[in-house]
Design a protein around this nucleic acid. Structure first.
Lengths: 226, 226, 226, 226
DNA sequence: TATGAATGAGGGTTCATTCAT
DNA sequence: TATGAATGAACCCTCATTCAT
């Protein structure tokens, strides 16, 4: 795999169990790690990938170059970690939602609203723009948005759909992952491209998103509901 | 206007009628201009905006640095010219189509197929990725995709819609430009994001696009048809 | 102030009192700073401002490009620092002299000799040539030779003259700064232009300067002495 | 000698005697030559030697690059021709004066006024600055200001002095050329350096120059008059 | 003869990364 | 372990000069 593949290491959450006292091992202090990610996110989102300099980032994060390079192998790795963090934050929200055991339609609706609200937020849009801009150099990173690992958003939702099929709430479906992506796409329909290309300068108002998601849920239920 | 605005000059097609013989004026030889654009397009699409170096481009295009800078005032201008060329090529196809005076539904269908086929092609996807990646530095360039100039794609289509309204084929509509964009979005539904993020490695097969567009036309006609 | 004004920062002497041990802060090691200035002075004086390349300078100074740009923000700033260093060195000599409290005539004489000897030295002549050559781009730098800051040469001498007036040794004078400049001019009379234009290849011998200054002192005392 | 030495060729006045009719030989049309010099002078004086580009000059002069390079071997040669032209213009004025056979003192006075007025003019000051700035690359050019050729200013004046000695109007003198330079220096005393370093932004008013020259003449006559 | 398009070395400057402290 | 000074390749762009037309 590409060298980007290695970044899974620095991306995984630090495990502090071996150092209950004293200074954490090099590159293992989760607080410092977050501090670096916060600073780097700020700079990357403001400047883009290439225009952001590691110096800017160290300054913003308040750490030294050496420390930065202990926590992250290089600029790409650092950026990947930021994107991963963003993604995991959304996944966590979605996971919480699914754990709530709401009705199917309410779940679909909430799921769509959370997804759309976050993916269309300024922060996420900027992140997605950068990811898209460096896709040739870091192709794995873009994939990451779709379906990596069993806890990824689409897989999580696909599992939910499967369960609903077993419960008889939905018709049997061949490729639940594909369908879960299509549902996501439907929730973003008409909003994503204008946001991405900067035509829509602000995130759409909540009502706009809600209406979009309602339509998406209706279409989804028409197609797969029982 | 912004400095990007100037690029319209170098973007406008050279007018060869005055120079049937002899050497073309500096920066005015359309063949050399195309040669440079071809080379630059190749490099930009392969490497992205920042990673592409002007040296790479001169090598690929087979011209010297000096010549390059006679035709294009800087890297941004050169890139803008490439994107504009792509855009104009699509507009030309769409214009040809509208000139054919097919039936409304056939026109909608053909329009959608052409649009989707081109916007999802490898070349266009790569171009759009780069545009998105440099959107903070060149915001005009992204706008260009939507509705600049009376002959832009959305405006052209909006004019067509207006005429159909006058002919009584469509219901009156408030914002034809918005609606024409929504129609375009619909044609790309479920395809654009996977292509943009590299999940769908190849352009979708023609049948896939056609099915998408059929659905889009049906929805459109349900909403606005008479 | 102009961007040249900023250079005062990099020009000010580093304050080493805080860093008795360890590595000096970036751009703050006075030894390295001198090393760069020495190398740059050598190159600038040999080639002139434009013909000197930053590469030449790094090579001569034995530092890398990056280091050079940590200490000096650009070529102009670097050159300004060299000139300022030269100027300050002369000012220091003149200040020492004035502190000696010699007789008025002896002071005038010594002042003139020091001034002329230094301004006509090869190093200073070359520096002045370059300053003159770039005067349109760096006008502040040329002014610097005349009367900036309370410790500048002319002001320092003007203060001395004022004191002598108060002591009754000299007649009251309207514009002591102007007069102190005229005295300097007189000390250089007949020597400055030939040196500047390269007709006089070597600095004039000490006796020549002394004779010039004697004449200048005599004229001065005739005009302003009591 | 340096390659600059060759420039004597392009500096000498074109001799059109062989081409009474038709187009002048390449690089021999004196009108075009003047046209180029005018444009180049304008650009050089405005921008300095290095910052002036040959493109700017061709544009200002209204000739093509090729033509420019037919008339002048290179940038240095072109600049040398401008300086030579300025110098010759002053020499011509001085020669006219000497031909008038005025009284000794009147001649000295007029000579000094003409010299100072021209050398302190904005055009000449800018020219001298540039000459000084490139003196390492074009040392001959600076010498040119002092005493090249039998018709140079100082030699011309020295000849005049010799004749006055023979007429018994002046005391015998060892080095008339040196003395004539000193006289020139005296006429510029107190004015040249402030002008050159840009402290005196405008040429001094006529009265100021006249007073300076009167003093110079008086000193001269005290020293050498009979 | 006159033109100006083309060349490409070289300019100043930046910045990801390393490693002595 | 943490620091940040140092590195130097690579960046975009300019321009004196040449030579095909």
């Amino acid at each position: 795999m590409t060298e980007f593949g290695d970044s899974a290491d620095s991306t995984s959450v630090a495990k502090p169990e071996c150092q209950p006292f004293g200074r954490p091992a090099a590159g293992e202090d989760p607080i410092k790690r977050e501090q670096i990610l916060d600073g780097a996110q700020c700079i990357f989102m403001r400047m883009g990938f290439d225009a952001a300099s590691m110096n800017d980032i160290t300054r913003e994060a308040g750490v030294s170059k050496g420390t930065l390079y202990v926590y992250f192998k290089n600029k790409e790795d650092l950026f990947a970690a930021i994107i991963t963090r963003q993604k995991l934050a959304i996944y966590a929200l979605l996971e919480d939602l699914l754990a709530k055991k709401l009705s199917l339609e309410e779940t679909l609706y909430q799921f769509g609203v959370i997804l759309a609200t976050h993916l269309l937020s300024e922060k996420a849009i900027r992140g997605q723009r950068i990811v898209i801009g460096v896709i040739d150099r870091m192709p794995e990173l873009a994939n990451t948005f779709f379906a990596h690992g069993p806890n990824s958003g689409p897989n999580m939702f696909a599992n939910y759909l499967h369960k609903q099929v077993e419960l008889g709430k939905l018709k049997p479906m061949d490729d639940a992952v594909l369908i879960s992506r299509q549902f996501g796409d439907l929730c973003l329909a008409g909003l994503f491209r204008p946001r991405l290309f900067g035509e829509m300068k602000e995130p759409p108002p909540a009502e706009r998103i809600e209406k979009n998601v309602e339509t998406a849920v209706r279409l989804f239920m028409n197609a797969y509901g029982r």
